[in-house]
Computed example of a mutant assay.
Amino acid sequence: MKEILCIIGSCISLQLGAALAVQLFPVASTWGTAIVRLVTAGMLLCALVRPRVSRWTRTQWGAVVLFGASLGLMNGFFYAAIGRIPLGTAITIEFLGPLLLAAVLSRSLADALCVLLALCGIALLGLDSLTGSALDPVGAVFALIAGGFWVCYILASQRAGRLVPGQGGLAVALLLGGVVLVPLGAPGAATITTDPSLLLLAAGTGLLASLIPYSLELAALRGLTPNAFSVLIALEPVFAAFFGWLLLAQPVTVLKGAAVCLVVAASILQTLTTSRRRPKKPASLEPVSC
């Protein structure tokens, strides 16, 4: 029960952090907001865990650098997406990345059904954009790119988790992720750092969207199998749609709601069918969302 509450708390914190970040977009840009969020969370986590980077080998550093680059680009493109399209829609589209990765690695009739369900969900989003409020195509592309980097993040995080014990790899990866985005968002990040009120808001975003959910998920993984974790984290598009409606006044139409349900169902089905075919492995560093 405690682990389930941790996952639910993580989903809530992530979406609250994303909704809070949207308030910074007009003055600091999406890229600048992502930089400050990642760097703030990385500094806080480094202060807590004090990673002994001087003892890391070249292999460990290489794994953490790839981890940080994928983490930064995943977050940057996701923020660029929610700057143009609703939060729930962006999360739903982004979920295609991990889902397709699982399908490619498994290859079965059940996997094909999962992909078909997810594609039907995306088709419903497209239909909704034609019959209701138009869906910004650039925002949708940004969400797809974020999903692609989520795939890279999953692979890089698993490798970094095996090579670097504890949370030190995550702490440094957060800092590196912010650095990767500097060419795209340096002016916006500078705007935040020169205004105490904006800096406080950005710090809250870093806590809610990075430090708290990552810590809760790592705590949950100590008592959950990867299969159970993946099923629970698939609820994230639902929370995203709810908080987008509650905090950002983003409407949830019938078609959008159906699209979210189809993607969530595809993710759960993918997880359940995969777990039946493969022996359970101990979790190291599971994929987390934006």
Rank of each mutant, 00 (worst) to 15 (best):
C46N: 10
L200P: 01
F25M: 12
G178T: 06
P213K: 03
R159W: 06
G132I: 11
A112N: 15
G17Q: 08
V65P: 00
R84S: 09
R278W: 12
A110V: 11
I192G: 05
L66D: 08
V49Y: 02
G72M: 01
D195F: 10
I233F: 07
A112Q: 14
E217P: 01
L174S: 03
Q270R: 14
P26L: 08
I154D: 04
L218H: 15
A47C: 12
L71I: 01
G223L: 06
A18I: 09
L207Q: 08
R37S: 02
V115K: 03
A19M: 08
L269H: 11
P282F: 10
G168W: 04
G257P: 04
T33K: 02
W150Y: 12
S215W: 08
K256S: 14
P287C: 14
L232N: 04
L135V: 14
P226R: 14
T131G: 11
C6M: 12
I8M: 13
I233Q: 09
V172C: 01
C6L: 12
T57C: 03
P137D: 11
V164N: 00
V180E: 00
F95E: 08
L105Y: 07
A258R: 08
A69S: 13
F67E: 06
V104W: 15
T225Y: 07
L232Q: 07
S10A: 15
L176N: 02
T273F: 08
A189V: 05
W31C: 06
L199D: 03
G97C: 08
R278I: 12
G126I: 10
R159Q: 12
A90Y: 01
G147D: 10
L184C: 11
V238L: 13
P213C: 13
L45F: 05
L198M: 10
D128Q: 15
R37V: 02
P287W: 12
W245I: 03
L221I: 13
L216G: 04
L124W: 06
S230Y: 07
F239R: 07
L218K: 15
T59I: 14
W31R: 09
I4A: 15
L211P: 01
R276C: 11
V115E: 09
S133A: 15
V182D: 11
S267R: 12
L117K: 10
G76W: 00
G177Y: 03
R37Y: 02
